[in-house]
Design a protein around this nucleic acid. Sequence first.
DNA 1: ACTATTCCTGACGCAGCGTCAGAATTGACT
DNA 2: AGTCAATTCTGACGCTGCGTCAGGAATAGT
Lengths: 282, 282
Amino acid sequence: MRHRNGNAKSPTRSPGTTRPASVSVPLTPKQAEIRSREIRILQQARPMVVRGGLSGLSMEAIAKKMSYAKGTIYNHFSCKEEILLALAIQANEIRLRLFESAIEGQQRSRDKIAAIGVACEDFCHRFDDLFGIDAMVRHVTVWEKASEQRRETLADCEQRCMGLVARIGHEAVATGDLTLPPNRAVEDVVFGLWSLTYGGSIIEQTSPGLDQIGIQDAFAAIRRNCHALMDGYHWHPLYDDQQDRRLVRRVRSALKRRVPRSLAEDDLFSESHLQGRELKHG
Amino acid sequence: MRHRNGNAKSPTRSPGTTRPASVSVPLTPKQAEIRSREIRILQQARPMVVRGGLSGLSMEAIAKKMSYAKGTIYNHFSCKEEILLALAIQANEIRLRLFESAIEGQQRSRDKIAAIGVACEDFCHRFDDLFGIDAMVRHVTVWEKASEQRRETLADCEQRCMGLVARIGHEAVATGDLTLPPNRAVEDVVFGLWSLTYGGSIIEQTSPGLDQIGIQDAFAAIRRNCHALMDGYHWHPLYDDQQDRRLVRRVRSALKRRVPRSLAEDDLFSESHLQGRELKHG
DNA sequence: ACTATTCCTGACGCAGCGTCAGAATTGACT
DNA sequence: AGTCAATTCTGACGCTGCGTCAGGAATAGT
């Protein structure tokens, strides 16, 4: 399983040159080409994965479409699963951004949670392909074959999402908005909200004909159920239909503005897990 | 995509013979062999799917293990996805049985729901492989390639599960145990419970290190969250720790008795979707 | 211009899917 | 116990796609 190693090496610069404090280090044309290619590979891969799952993703097809030899693709990603993980990382970075943008305008703990709920919904709607990818990645088959490095990056993203929500929970307890029942931790409540939202979204995306059972707008149902759950825990202020409607509208438009769909096609994100590396996947 | 058709034909019987009223029609030795083989194929397939997902399931490997030619396996199932669906059907039949057994001992609507929650938990625990299979089947890739007939059978199973729960909901409204908020249907509540349970179980099974976030017993957390949700809807009688504990214990032992793990290996279930058919997958 | 390093290529070996012509088996009826 | 049509079984075949690697091409340092 050894690969030819590719040591990261920055281009030589004359001593006097000051490196800009930001991330972007000047790249040689070659390095730039490589990085850009990596991004384009992922762009090619995304629709394939969405259409056909892991087996719909074909290294051969990517190579052909991009007019490269197969080996070149393998220089970037040692297997299909690596590509899937890379996409999942993008997905989680966007989700995290949505979360952060969502809570920004909120003061009260419960509003923050509600805003995150809207962010989840928004993620499923506007980035539905990424949501599907995120679900695939959780399967052992994929997880096992991917590199340690990428697994860690992904786990880290998830932790940050979870941590964000957990922090709000603790804040709620601290301010007195939420009083826990005996023998219950904040994490239990967070886990509940997470399960409800995640489960509902999965069902919405994979169960044909939910409306036949009487659910027209699954996401509205999820949102109201989250509120019912919080009401069940007496998380103040209790549900108010009017106010919630306003909040949803506000958060939605903020998200559309602050996290445009185009981000998913950008190279911005990929930077974070394309650090320094040159080729030959770590 | 035409296959050689195999018309079901019962063995000729002398006119005086009365056919037993029950399902089992006497089979020719050949027919019996075929049916038994179908079951054994599924038995072989199950661990493969569990270990490696759809790509871990290999027709070649099944044939080799059973010392048949590949073509013979293809006489039973026209593709891998068909096998997966057949397994998912088994899974759902067992789940339904668990549901039915669970509510049997309960009088109050809320207790019935709680009992079904325990059944879900039990299903994930004792039939964890089947739970995983059920999740895989929901992916479009699989769904599309499977035959109409099996898809319907599976959808039917699911409907029955859902219907069971929905009926309890309606019953609760009728008896006054549950009073719905304005603009809310019973189905919304059921959907909430379902999302919460399903989502939680998925997370439990696929998220490594839930206890790192502070969740030791995910299923206990799910159960309590379901109760909090029902409390949120004022579904009477409200949560009582003592009583719930007793109920859980009682239902668990009843399920273990009435739906033993061995059922999953039995042929009992497969009968239902192996009706009359001879070979060449309908 | 020379050389070392890095990068790209495409043929190769392998595994697995689904097909199908022909061999083998079955069983109904002499 | 023989005939024959229908059914079932077989395994070689064509194909797609993965991941590898020896060798050729490009790049960059001096």
